[in-house]
Design a protein around this nucleic acid. Structure first.
Length: 697
DNA sequence: CTTAGGG
DNA sequence: CCCTAAG
């Protein structure tokens, strides 16, 4: 094995993403290089932090004493390490010095591993570890007894225990979790601060040790290339804690701890025990292809805006369908439940006075609801179950006379048609309907008012004029949701109402045809897995997405392809475009918070370590391709917070390690490099860190 | 659409 | 997470 030339641009010994591709903007800004370099540091740090697979063998820790001899030894270690690393052809089994014994090595494991781990440090690993992770307390404990104690603890733990511990710890604090059970000062402190009652966990520095000092064997474990928490994998009952083996360090038996369920899932953790769960890092070509496809899909992934925008023209269907085809699993669930949910709730009142009620609408609702809608109490409709039922008061727009109190129990959804292959599952049918309904609801609605079963179209009349008064029988009054007319630019009515649109042409019922039914069926040869996949897939909306390697993905996509979401002409040149628009943005609801799971963070770190920052889209595609709810912005943000939480000072990011402990600082170790000597001048920071660590350990 | 960065 | 400027 050969250390690839990436070492050449290793920054402070950290692995550098292969030939970083500066983004266009970055190139333009000319700031890419710097950013990238900084990122390398972050990548490594966080990688180390998160993965908890530091390259140090536990034996590398100075074992028993903290004498100056030790320090000298450390210096030797470091220079040895450094030299080793500079020799690109040599084995990466870097010898460290522990009492001068070559048996006690710093293991860097093999090259491939190193590359996977992203650690190609030319620097002292010891230093790095210690620096970034507070490494093993064994390394840093000034007190010999303490140190050896820590060591004992470390060595006494089996891998499994480590995993268990880490997992448990993982479940305790989300801040803590983010570091994969490896303690980081900042993180730990934060955990303490945030959850004082759990400080017990925090004190267990052994976790860090264990993680950091795992056997080289363990280190060889393939790091997850992808973060996919495949929800289609068997998801065991969610317990409070994860199974012992859930810590993803075992080779070929990666267990995914998927915890990105909903925010308040009471720490529900799904140990996913599917073997070979992770797809190994795709080869370049492979990845290219995948990337290409994915990016294609990604690019056309409809957002809400897309939908609305594309709906604005009359010929929306082809466009939309195309998107639909491409979108597949990427279709983000965020679109519907959140951004759109409120739309109809708001849009009804806002539209009700918009003067958009049209004849065809009335026609529709009548047809659709079989007259039901024409009665005041329209019920939830058909299989959709998606009527927007809300009860509330609807005050009239009358200036200040007696108010009409209305109670709207529910709205009926206008009729629409769905075509779906017979081979489709009930689940997909439901989903199809749901999406159709959601699309209708989300794409702008009008409220139709019916009085005594008659459509009230004169929007400018007062309620009183219309005959709606407080002493009315409320039953005489009805409301229905009406789709916006997808019509050619409406012309203003020359009549009494300047805002009343003329929509005399009856609109055909919307259809939601399957995109390519036959093809789908062909592909979905076996309907059974289809069912399962779909079911799980739907559930997976809450969780992460399925693994990309899973071929059943296709089926899913196909089943999704059956879901033809209608394109409705939303605010097609609506009467009050600006108004509606502002409303829309107002309405947009915040997405639910979904804390990153350890696995995700790991994957993120890996991806960033590999790709560098500034390529969030690539990161997303590569590592979070299936996590539909993670946008590249999310990833970027997560990285941001990770770096912040890790308290990787700009200094460190620039590659100037800060000694965690003055006892180390003073040693000859730090005179090895100019950097090291510079470092001592920055002891200010180190003292802060010191105080910090002592708080924890 | 992506990225960067502030909030 | 959201928002937005900038490219």
């Amino acid at each position: 094995m050969v250390l690839q030339k990436r070492l050449d641009y290793g920054f402070n010994g950290y692995q550098v993403p292969p030939v970083p591709r500066a983004t266009r903007s970055a190139r333009r800004r000319g700031s890419f290089k710097k950013k990238h370099e900084e990122n390398q540091i972050c990548a490594f740090d966080l990688l180390a932090i998160v993965a908890g697979k530091l390259l140090l063998d536990k034996k590398s820790a100075p074992s028993s004493s903290n004498t100056s001899a030790d320090k000298d030894q450390c210096a030797v270690i470091n220079s040895a390490v450094k030299n080793k690393w500079q020799d690109v052809e040599k084995s990466l089994k870097v010898e460290a010095c522990d009492q001068g014994s070559s048996d006690k090595n710093i293991y860097v494991s093999d090259l491939s591993h190193v590359h996977r781990q992203g650690c190609s440090s030319k620097e002292s690993l010891v230093t790095q570890n210690d620096l970034n992770l507070g490494l093993a307390s064994a390394l840093t404990k000034p007190d010999c007894a303490e140190r050896s104690n820590a060591e004992r603890l470390v060595s006494g733990q089996t891998k499994n225990e480590i995993g268990t511990f880490a997992s448990k710890a993982e479940g305790d604090s989300s801040e803590y979790r983010e570091f994969g059970g490896c303690k980081l000062e900042a993180a730990t402190k934060r955990a303490v601060k945030d959850e004082p009652h759990k400080s017990g966990m925090v004190q267990s520095s052994t976790v860090a040790n264990m993680c950091n000092l795992e056997d080289p064997v363990v280190l060889d474990a393939k790091p997850p290339a992808l973060v996919s928490s495949d929800s289609r994998a068997k998801v065991p009952a969610c317990g409070n804690h994860i199974s012992n083996s859930s810590y993803p360090t075992n080779q070929d038996d990666l267990h995914v701890v998927s915890r990105d369920d909903d925010e308040n899932s009471s720490g529900c953790t799904h140990p996913i025990t599917t073997k070979k769960f992770f797809r190994p890092a795709p080869r370049i070509g492979d990845r290219r292809i995948r990337k290409f496809l994915a990016s294609k899909c990604w690019k056309v992934a409809p957002r809400l805006k897309d939908a609305t925008v594309s709906n604005c023209d009359g010929n929306f269907k082809p466009v939309f369908r195309k998107r639909q085809n491409c979108y597949r699993h990427q279709r983000s669930e965020r679109i519907y439940p959140f951004k759109k949910r409120k739309h109809f709730a708001y849009s009804s009142p806002s539209n009700s006075d918009g003067g958009m009620s049209c004849e065809f609408v009335s026609d529709l609702s009548l047809k659709g609801s079989n007259g039901d809608a024409s009665v005041s109490r329209s019920r939830m409709h058909g299989a959709t179950g998606a009527s927007s039922s809300f009860a509330g008061q609807r005050t009239s727009f009358l200036p200040r006379d007696s108010h009409v109190k209305l109670r709207i129990k529910s709205f009926s959804v206008p009729e629409f048609l769905i075509e779906i292959p017979e081979s489709s599952t009930v689940g997909s049918l439901k989903r199809t309907v749901m999406e159709a309904v959601t699309a209708i609801l989300g794409s702008g609605l009008h409220v139709g008012v019916l009085l005594q079963g008659k459509k009230v179209r004169e929007d400018n009349k007062t309620l009183r004029q219309t005959g709606i008064s407080h002493n009315n029988q409320l039953d005489a009054l009805g409301f229905c949701l009406e789709p916006n007319p997808s019509q050619t630019p409406p012309s203003l009515s020359p009549g009494d109402s300047p805002f009343l649109l003329q929509c005399d042409t009856p609109q055909p019922i919307r259809r939601y045809p399957p995109t390519t039914g036959e093809v789908n069926q062909d592909i979905c040869a076996d309907p059974e897995p289809h069912v399962n996949n779909l079911g799980n897939y739907i559930e997976s909306d809450h969780d992460s997405a399925p693994s990309p390697t899973d071929t059943s993905m296709d089926k899913n996509s196909n089943s999704k392809a059956l879901v033809a979401v209608p394109a409705m002409n939303v605010e097609a040149l609506a009467v009050v475009p600006a108004h509606q628009k502002s409303k829309r943005s107002e309405i947009a609801q915040r997405r639910i918070r979904r804390p990153f799971s350890v696995t995700e963070v790991e994957a993120l770190v890996h991806a960033v370590e590999k790709l560098g920052t500034g390529r969030w889209r690539d990161v997303k595609l590569q590592a979070f391709d299936n996590a539909k709810h993670r946008t590249y912005v999310d990833l970027k943000d997560k990285w941001k917070t990770l770096v912040h939480t890790a308290r990787i000072s700009p200094q460190q990011r620039r590659g100037e390690p800060v000694p965690p402990r003055s006892s180390w600082t003073g040693s000859s170790l730090h005179t090895l490099t100019g950097r090291s000597s510079r470092r001592s001048s920055s002891s200010n920071t180190s003292r802060q860190r010191l105080a910090f660590s002592s708080e924890i350990w």
